[in-house]
Computed example of a mutant assay.
Amino acid sequence: MRNAKRARRVKHVLLLLVLAGIATIAVGALRPLFGAGEALTYESREARLGDISTHMSFGATISAKHSQTAMAMARTSVSEVYVATGQGVKTGDKLLKLENGSTYVSEIDGTVDEVAVSAGDAVWPGATLVQVCDFDGLQATLKVDEYDIHSISVGQKCTATVVSLGLSFETEIAHINRISSGGSVAYYTVTADIDAPDSVLPGMEATVAIPDGSVEGAVVLDMDALAFDEEGAYVLVRGAAGTYERKPVELGIDDGMAVEIVSGLEAGDTVYFADGAAEAEGGFSFGGIYKALFGETTVIRDRSETGGRSETGGPGDAIGGGETSGWNGRESD
């Protein structure tokens, strides 16, 4: 009988130890759920006077305005060659003569780029004989689709940049071919003449930037301070009670970084925008539950270049609801 009581006592002690261990583990696991809550973090931006310019940018290729490729028209052989590679020629200068009596002359002023045959060589229809190119008359050739072609006109100022060389040339649109190339979307060939050094060659990749709009001395604001809802753009401002309130703004042009404020703000006005979350002491947090179950990813943002100060608002700071959305703008000069 005494042994049975002793066995029950030992069993009770072991059960209490197991329960104490489970409680200790549970407290450690659930502590993050009751430790820290979350509060929105705000950054500020100031409206200011500034200039904004935008442009349309197109991919282009450098090409020669004038070139000539002399090709054989019949099966024969070369009788005489009158020029050499790199030689300058004028319109009408002889290039070569074939055994069938055909004589080829230069159709342009330029430079002999290649002599593909020698005297005595056999040739056949379509064979290349001599190439002549005017390397002083280069142009940037671009394709513009039907959605943008209405914004392009002959004489329009533009900047052509040779990508590999980093060279830019101020020029203007010289010609628009108004007969489109095929496809589901119509494309039109547009050219701009460039006065380029010898290092620029036909076939090089280029870009052409065409001014699209500009404002000077306007009220401008960094675009990350904007928010949008079904009624349009708005910003957050501090109300008399210290809460954040929505203020509608009318937008003008933007360059992808800053936007013109047509109405709603004056230069010097300060606006705010939510930027992530900061931890607040105490309280139960569903964020804590998520972190405890699945872990946490921390994103560090360098604010050293923003010039804005950070403010942290608690759950009592009203921001008027709504979600912020991104904004895509044109490229900047």
Rank of each mutant, 00 (worst) to 15 (best):
C133Y: 02
C133F: 05
G183A: 08
E296Y: 06
T189I: 13
D145S: 13
A127F: 03
V237A: 03
M71N: 12
Y272C: 02
L165A: 12
E281D: 15
L138E: 02
D317H: 11
S180N: 10
G120N: 11
R2K: 14
F286V: 15
T189W: 03
E114V: 08
A240C: 05
V185G: 05
G316D: 11
A280W: 00
T171A: 10
L201E: 06
P202E: 10
L40F: 13
D195R: 11
L15Q: 14
E172Y: 12
D254H: 14
Y82P: 01
Y187Q: 08
H66L: 13
D93P: 01
A84D: 13
L165E: 12
G217H: 08
R8V: 13
F294C: 14
I62F: 06
A240H: 14
V249C: 10
S151W: 11
I194N: 01
H66W: 09
K157Y: 15
G182T: 10
K247D: 04
K5L: 11
D93W: 02
S263V: 12
S151R: 15
A227T: 09
D109H: 04
A64C: 08
G308L: 06
S168K: 12
E260H: 08
L138V: 05
A72Q: 04
T103M: 09
Y188V: 08
I52L: 08
L96M: 15
C133G: 03
G320D: 00
S181R: 09
G217R: 04
T54F: 07
I179S: 13
E250I: 11
A206N: 03
D113W: 02
M1Q: 07
V81C: 07
P248F: 12
S102T: 14
T297Y: 15
